[in-house]
Design a protein around this nucleic acid. Structure first.
Lengths: 239, 239
DNA sequence: TAGATTGTTAATCGATTAACAATC
DNA sequence: TAGATTGTTAATCGATTAACAATC
């Protein structure tokens, strides 16, 4: 068996393919957060990190970190900890950063523009390919180096450019139709910002519904709960 | 004990205050989704719904629905089901829709504009009060009926207008500073879109960090996993 | 080697589901 | 009343934490 030098971040002949079989949803949901924190450590030139230090930074238990990372194979080294670069690379691999997925963004409104002008895609290894809109005024324009095409061209474009991901920032009512068009054109993942749950059961497509508003509601829930607790507490008797 | 007519959605003298004590995080996280689906049913003029029908629509177990809704008190009625309007009202109440929170949005870039131009706040009972930006070019302009002020005025504005919620769509590096300013000015909740986890431990403020990108990564994770499964499966021997 | 820290098992805790009695 | 459907308890399942042996 070839040894992998996790400490220096260099590899022997064959790195073990990260294993994904039967990884629990709870762990998967946490991966992007690990990725963020490790990216931060990397930018700060940290070479190694122990589960206990990472646990202090991330405010989770060290036990959970070790358990999580171990789902995919032994990423650390006893007595040393984890090599930041190596670990970051492994998690990036799991999250498809090196898959080179190509994405189109449908809807060149404020949200579409916000997404393409950010480092959103770039940072995650997703290649922005083009913008689409139904508004003739926008067609032909360029935002953040991305050309806007008319949605009529969407199906052909996706096919010809082997688009993997479709990002939906269109109005609610248009979402289902556009999604189906993309699914037919071979798109394999849809990132949906319309405020409804898209379902493409007939197609072999993975859908991520992004409900930004849910987060605002959770914030409000917590604010109300806090007030309830503090204000007007009788403190007389009983529980 | 006064009876509450859950069936007609009308109330007796005293409606039971929804109880929030020790509700599990898992349930809280699901509330916005119930809210969305019930809103949809309400728009479609549905008067009642049973846990079993709702379970089909939402693709969760009926058992979970009954268990969840029961955390806060008996919202249903045996033999009948749930009154859609009543239930929607109760969940709205839990989520602070009727709290009348006032929000400012700091950062009048594409994301800020996208948020204020949507029904994001309105739909959740949050009142948009003003926009703020550091760019003199933008100050004085109006977007979606909202005036843009200079961030220098943020602290005073929040105090004078009793702002409850601050929405951060500023660049990463500016986020912590702006957040602190708002906390000092009495803001009690911060909705942070900067790609970093804001912590305001010294202040009595609730922070919701919105990591849009995590959702894209999860999508990519699932796409890679699916490919791994389908492609190049040796099917020779061993597991 | 001794010290540190992972990998991993076992114990605990929390969340989900199933089942059914209560009740409308 | 009979039928339907909730509220609620008990059983199962999954996720987290604690503990420690393995090992670098």
């Amino acid at each position: 068996m070839e040894r992998i030098d996790k400490v220096n971040g260099t590899f022997g002949r064959r790195a073990p393919a990260v294993s994904r079989d039967s990884v629990s949803p709870a762990v998967i949901k946490r991966l992007p957060r690990y990725h963020r924190y490790l990216g931060e450590l990397l930018r700060n030139d940290r070479l190694r990190i122990s589960s206990s230090e990472l646990s202090r930074i991330m405010r989770v238990t060290a036990s959970q970190i070790r358990q999580d990372l171990n789902c995919f194979g032994g990423f650390g080294q006893q007595g040393y900890g984890y090599n930041v670069k190596y670990l970051y690379g492994k998690i990036s691999e799991l999250l498809g950063v090196s898959a080179g997925y190509r994405a189109v963004i449908v809807g060149a409104g404020n949200l579409g523009k916000a997404l393409v002008s950010s480092h959103m895609f770039e940072r995650r290894g997703v290649i922005r390919s083009a913008l689409f809109d139904i508004d003739e005024e926008l067609v032909g324009k360029t935002f953040s180096d991305l050309k806007v095409y008319h949605v009529d061209e969407l199906e052909n474009y996706c096919r010809e450019n082997r688009i993997d991901i479709g990002v939906l920032t269109v109005p609610r009512d248009a979402a289902a139709g556009v999604a189906e068009t993309m699914a037919k054109a071979g798109v394999r993942g849809i990132w949906n910002f319309a405020n409804m749950e898209l379902r493409l059961d007939e197609y072999d497509v993975i859908v991520q519904n992004m409900h930004i508003g849910d987060s605002l509601m959770t914030l409000c829930y917590e604010m109300v709960s806090k007030e309830d607790k503090h204000e007007a507490r009788p403190e007389v008797e009983g529980k």
